[in-house]
Amino acid sequence: MSDNPASSPLNPSADSTESPRSKTEESVSPTRSSFQVNQDVYQGPLDKLLDMARDYKIDIFQVSLSVIADEFLAHVRSMERHNLDEIGDFLVIAGYLMVLKSRQMLPSATEAEEEAPEIDEEQLLLQRLKDYERFREAADLLRKAEADRRLLYWRDTPPPSVGQRDAVEFYEVNVFDLANAFKRVLAEIGEDRPNLIQGEEYTIDEKMAEIQLLLHDNGEMCLTLYLASMHSRVEIIVTFLALLELIRLLKVSARQSIMLGDIWIYRVDVIKRDAEGEVELTFASEESGFIGEQPLGEENTTPASNENQEHTPSQQPHENLELNANEPGIDS
């Protein structure tokens, strides 16, 4: 690895002693320590010091670990933002250095009989350090791969079937579509995250509030993406129940643009009833004037909607869903 400042896009003028070595020498690992050891026998990054001490290229007795520790503390205090990785790395490397040094301090104290295992143990430690270095390199490689990957985009949502999504005809979603969507997510979770169930408690009220909060800004969200952020079956089941309840209360509506496509959740802003007593819902995403102005959780009722609440048998969520389904012509 050549120390060539010109090759670093991050820090083209990297030659001052203060400039982070991670940028001049290893531009692939920006979170590596910028801490520099500054002693008579050695000047440079801490992990290089470990390398050299390990290979006996440097006499560890000439290096004051306590001075290094003090300098590092000063360095930490001068950091604008504390970098936990860097601090953790320091502890690990400094710990290894202390082990190396203390081992070398006790060579003659343990004579013949203990010498053999002593060496073994040291070999073991050195091997572990070497392994660890390798994996640090592997991590650098992965970081580079990740950075490359971040420059690319590909489809991760179903493409719209015709032009923009707004222009697409939507199908109302019934309770079975919803249940299927949840089932798919549950099946996936069952495979990949089996042991993450305990610990958290979710309540339907909380989830209802969360969904409404999420809908507060945009008025719509993709159910699949929302569920993908969850980690446990319990959370997903609670979300399902919360969503059913919100639909029953006519607070939100669920639709999808293609059969078996992603289900979208919309905030319902206005509930109207026309002359025939049919219910008409207006969605936040369609009435731009309402976006962000509607207080969260408040009943957005027109005079007719009180009646509507009575008209709608609130114990039967199915009926609401069917009511929605009878209203395909909401394309204001």
């Binding site: 690992s29 979170t31 590596r32 990785d85 953790g88 790395d89 994996f135 640090r136 592997a138 991590a139 650098d140 490689l141 992965l142 970081r143 990740e146 950075a147 971040r150 985009y153």
Partner: peptide
Amino acid sequence: LERRKKRTLSQAALETLSVIAY
């Protein structure tokens, strides 16, 4: 696509991952 900014992994996470991968 500002809303889709992807999160990167920390150094510690990458090291752990590389140990597992190898």
